[in-house]
Write a protein that binds this DNA or RNA. Structure first.
Lengths: 208, 208
DNA sequence: ACATTATCACCCCAATGGGGGGATTTTAAT
DNA sequence: ATTAAAATCCCCCCATTGGGGTGATAATGT
């Protein structure tokens, strides 16, 4: 097999930081090359550490973990970033993933699973804690009890794609007035009176 | 602990179907209550089986797995659906999750992992194969080399939310003309000349 | 058979969107 | 310190759109 997986840990809590370092360092094929208490500390020399995987906490002094992700990406274009945190808010998770994190583990994750996830992420996987995976999957799912009919949902999707009434009419092979009528009914059902509000309400209720 | 987890398998390949049944039936706390070769077969009596978890294949004769998900949901509002398939196309995965699947495993998944995933899904988790998780996470990630500036990206997001120029101007505390100017530049950079095309191009390239 | 859904019609008018042509200042990177 | 990029703002034009009313009729499905 190849050389050790090089790991850097960024975590402000000393106990946790050293705990991880010890845990991972003991595992065959893993090498903790450095660890930092903050991103701001890490920024100076992490490029020289040349890690394959960065274990990153969210709550950090100074630059927080979310903000740190794109900066790390610039310093280490080929490294994978694995979030390891107690934060479980939907917003935080999606921000982390959108910013380029390759995995998201919560701190209750068993030690073996953490070590395993580091390998997984290096091999192109996307490790997630079970609760995180649930939230991620839920984010894909539509509301089953939508008040909108199929046609209305379809038209609302096109509206969310920025299409004008006439474009929608052309695309669906129906009359302009029909589109208008559908949109009116959508507004009625969602209790809104503009495209923007319709899209907002629809997204909030996962209708589209 | 509680009673056994009740499982129904829908899978057209006899070897695989019986293999799963045997594998899962042997595990402590798991009970395969029935298995079917297609959804159309299952539809008749699956409600009487009262499963907690349905293992569902995608490629099925008649109603395919994707189409079957919402129908299963109606027949079994409280059951979890776990996709177990060889299909790994992005479209299929997202359709399955959007339709209400609670997990997505590929058939190369080790036997132990399958059994574990059934429990996980019943406990509210969202099990995924590593390759699936990678695709799901990737779907959240933005294109790092966006040609758009921050402000432009922000404004394009608002456009995708259906907002008018004046609404955007109000929300960002800038002049209407500034918004106009930004939109012009967005159109230039994306080589489009309408909101709809801008949104389309942006989504295709994961700029928003 | 009855309610929902889908379709189409015509009234009005302010606001919008997109195509031009610019300029200036602030910010960031080198 | 220089310079490029980004962000801000200002005019012109005008066809199209979007939203508010107030309807009708045919198709669909439960």
């Amino acid at each position: 097999m190849g050389r050790d997986i090089r790991i850097v840990i960024i975590e402000d809590d000393q106990i946790i930081r050293e705990g991880y370092a010890l845990l991972i360092g003991q595992s065959e094929g893993y090498q903790v090359v450095n660890s930092y208490v903050s991103f701001d500390e890490a920024a100076k020399s992490i490029a020289d550490d040349g890690p394959d995987v960065v274990l990153l906490d969210i709550e950090l002094p100074g630059t927080n973990g979310i903000q740190a992700i794109p900066k790390l990406k610039r310093l280490l274009p080929h490294a994978y970033i694995l979030i390891l945190t107690v934060y479980e808010s939907e917003k935080t998770i999606f921000e982390a993933l959108a910013n380029g994190a390759s995995g998201y583990l919560t701190k209750n994750t068993p030690a073996i699973k953490i070590v395993e996830s580091i390998r997984e992420v290096k091999e192109g996987g996307g490790p997630m804690s079970v609760n995180i995976a649930r939230m991620v999957i839920k984010s894909f799912q539509r509301n089953q009890e939508s008040p909108l009919s199929r046609r209305e949902t379809q038209i609302l999707e096109q509206i969310a794609d920025g299409k004008s009434r006439s474009q929608i009419a052309r695309d669906l092979f129906i009359d302009l007035e029909t589109v208008r009528s559908h949109i009116k009914n959508i507004y009625l059902k969602l209790d809104v009176n503009s495209r923007a509000d319709a899209i907002k309400t629809a997204k909030e209720n996962k209708l589209i």
